[in-house]
């Protein structure tokens, strides 16, 4: 499972970085989204990969912490997802405004410039 998760993080990151460096604004935003998926998976894996382990204690039941998944990274991932979703949406608006003002989807506002 470790290899699978590591590989998917690697593929997402590599694609994200490549797209982030492309000159089209749409490629940049997709790149950022892919990167944020990779980071979310990474945070999740930092709580150690476990299968069939719940992150919740049952009330009144004496539980063995070793049998439980770490709940904190899961909470962090939720927060990170919400924040990156919101900022990506904001970025999308700016992207559209730039497209409208410059008439091109090049990040420098034109093919010939710079």
């Amino acid at each position: 499972m470790e290899a699978l998760v590591a590989l998917s993080i690697a593929v997402l990151t590599a694609s994200g970085v490549w797209l982030l460096l492309r000159p089209r604004t749409f490629q940049v935003i997709i790149g950022l989204s892919l990167l944020s998926y990779a980071v979310n998976l990474f945070i999740f894996s930092m709580g150690r990969l476990r299968s069939n382990a719940a992150p919740l204690l049952e009330k009144g039941v004496q539980a063995d912490p070793a049998a439980l998944a770490d709940p904190l990274p899961q909470a962090l991932v939720l927060t990170a997802i919400v924040i990156s979703f919101a900022t990506t949406a904001l970025f999308l608006v700016v992207l559209l405004a730039a497209r409208g003002l410059s008439g091109t989807d090049h990040v420098d506002g034109g093919e010939g410039r710079q």
Partner: peptide, 29 residues
């Protein structure tokens, strides 16, 4: 137009930096 173009790059750089922030924090955790 100048502000929107500058803003576009500013946002892209800071979004990428935020992702690095998350990676750093989670590794420390």
């Amino acid at each position: 137009q100048q502000r929107v173009e500058a803003g576009l790059k500013y946002i892209a750089i800071n979004l990428a930096a935020s992702l690095l922030f998350l990676i750093g924090v989670s590794m420390i955790y």
